[in-house]
Design a protein around this nucleic acid. Structure first.
Length: 111
DNA sequence: GTGATGACGCAGT
DNA sequence: GACTGCGCCATCA
């Protein structure tokens, strides 16, 4: 088990997301080569049971919709957390998604 | 061991 | 432009 499980890598990437930024399942799935965006959502869902606290509220679907808000303590918690970071949410969707969108390889700066 | 489901994404209609 | 169906891989019943 020296090799990290794919969901641990999801935790790492999610924790790498800076404040005021968000990422998408598709981006993370592509970055980790999971092959399925569902795996990312599933991994984040398990993150609530993990010791590590994952800012899952910074992860949304490809459309920028807060699809996973229902998994939070309250369906509005996710939106409030994002708005608290300066992100505007309208109709449960991120405004100016591309402006706040963050990519793992962007921080890695892989040239 | 099989079937169904899931915080999604894409192609086709 | 919106909706439907299928695929992705792992977990649960």
């Amino acid at each position: 088990m020296e090799k990290k499980n794919y969901h641990e890598q999801v935790y790492e990437v999610t924790q790498m997301i800076p404040e005021g930024r968000v990422s998408t399942y598709g981006i993370i799935a592509d970055y980790l080569a999971l092959g399925s965006a569902r795996m990312v959502g599933w991994a984040l869902n398990k993150s609530f049971s993990s010791e590590n606290q994952i800012p899952a509220h910074r992860v949304v679907n490809r459309k920028g919709e807060l699809s996973g808000r229902v998994h939070f303590s309250t369906p509005t918690l996710m939106q409030e957390l994002l708005e608290a970071e300066g992100i505007t949410i309208v109709n449960d969707k991120i405004v100016g998604l591309e402006s706040v969108l963050w990519k793992p390889w962007e921080d890695e700066e892989e040239d």
